[in-house]
Amino acid sequence: MTMASEESKTIQVTPPDKAKIRKIWMTALFLGVVTAVEFVIAFTMGASAFRTSLFVGLTLVKAFYIVSEFMHLKYEMKVLIWSILIPTIFIVWLLLALLIEGEAIFMVKF
């Protein structure tokens, strides 16, 4: 107990950087606004391929901000960024492959 209190005396607490904290809240606000826009679209537009692509686009925008700002990936080494991003190509491939497959199953069934 005494040791811990002695050590905590030596720890230097840096005061918060206002600009940094502001940026965090701005990112959060932006994510909230994008979600609000998604709600507005959900209630005002009828379902269509355009609306779906709009939703996917906005989702990717949100994903970009979460990964780059909150998860701090934007500020890591280039090599690290690419070694995380490039493998996601497999996800794109699976998406295309299975959606085409789904349509084919639909053709057979209905």
Binding site: V13, P16, T27, A28
Partner: peptide, 30 residues
């Protein structure tokens, strides 16, 4: 979708508080 909206908001907010915890950790502010 109102309830899901609330859930989304809760999760985004808890993500923000997490970033703030990480930021405080950088400053050694227990």
């Amino acid at each position: 979708l109102v309830f899901v909206g609330i859930m989304t908001f809760i999760l985004i907010m808890s993500s923000v508080t997490m970033v703030l915890a990480v930021e405080a950790g950088h400053r050694m502010d227990r």
